[in-house]
């Protein structure tokens, strides 16, 4: 990586609960040290609206639940050197994928919330991104380079992976992480 500019980090939030992002923030004061070595170029914590070109590392929380997310994830893959599935939703589908066992799940979840549980104007919204028939983990949509399991992954594991990658090393997750 060129020494004159700090490596670029992006974070992305698909169908997840933000707990994985919170776990990143749970590095507390160590965040300030991390900030010295990277440039945070995109994500829910920063104000950039378009995904930048040539991102070095992209951390992705959440599963893929709608068409817009799937299309965007493919775009992000094109512009990211290293793409990491952050947390169980991204790695396995986890909680959002609980709907996959339901018949015609996209319709069934919408029906319950917006029709059965509405007192006024029961209707399924249509002027919104359409839900996919099933919820997918990242690797079923794009190539994933590294996985950080956990719900959420412990803060230290996220820091470890970033530190290793910044040092040009391959993080070893064995005995480090578990699901849940």
């Amino acid at each position: 990586m060129p020494s004159n500019s700090k490596p670029k980090l992006a974070t992305l939030w698909l169908s997840g609960c933000s707990g994985c992002h919170m776990s990143l923030l749970d590095n507390d004061e160590a965040l300030l040290d991390l900030a010295k070595n990277i440039q945070l170029v995109y994500g829910p914590l920063v104000d950039t609206k378009a995904f930048p070109e040539n991102v070095d590392i992209t951390l992705i929380e959440g599963a893929v639940a709608n068409y817009e997310q799937a299309a965007f994830l493919k775009e992000v893959r094109k512009h990211s050197k290293i793409l990491i599935a952050l947390g169980d939703c991204a790695v396995t589908g986890n909680v959002p994928a609980l709907r996959n066992t339901i018949k015609d799940s996209a319709n069934a979840v919408l029906q319950r919330a917006f029709v059965e549980n509405s007192d006024k104007q029961p209707l399924i919204p249509t002027d919104v991104p359409k839900l996919l028939r099933k919820v997918y983990p990242l690797h079923e949509v794009v190539k994933v380079d590294h996985y950080i399991p956990g719900c959420p992954p412990p803060a230290g594991n996220i820091a470890y992976v970033l530190t290793e990658l910044l040092a040009g090393k391959i993080p070893i997750m064995e005995n480090k992480s578990k699901y849940g």
């Binding site: 169908s15 639940a65 709608n66 817009e68 997310q69 909680v95 959002p96 609980l98 709907r99 066992t101 339901i102 799940s105 069934a108 979840v109 919408l110 029906q111 319950r112 919330a113 549980n117 919104v128 991104p129 839900l131």
Partner: peptide, 14 residues
């Protein structure tokens, strides 16, 4: 102000 994704807890907990 539009919210544009949905997960469906109210159903998949059945």
């Amino acid at each position: 102000f539009q919210v544009i994704d949905f997960r469906g807890f109210e159903k998949f907990c059945d």
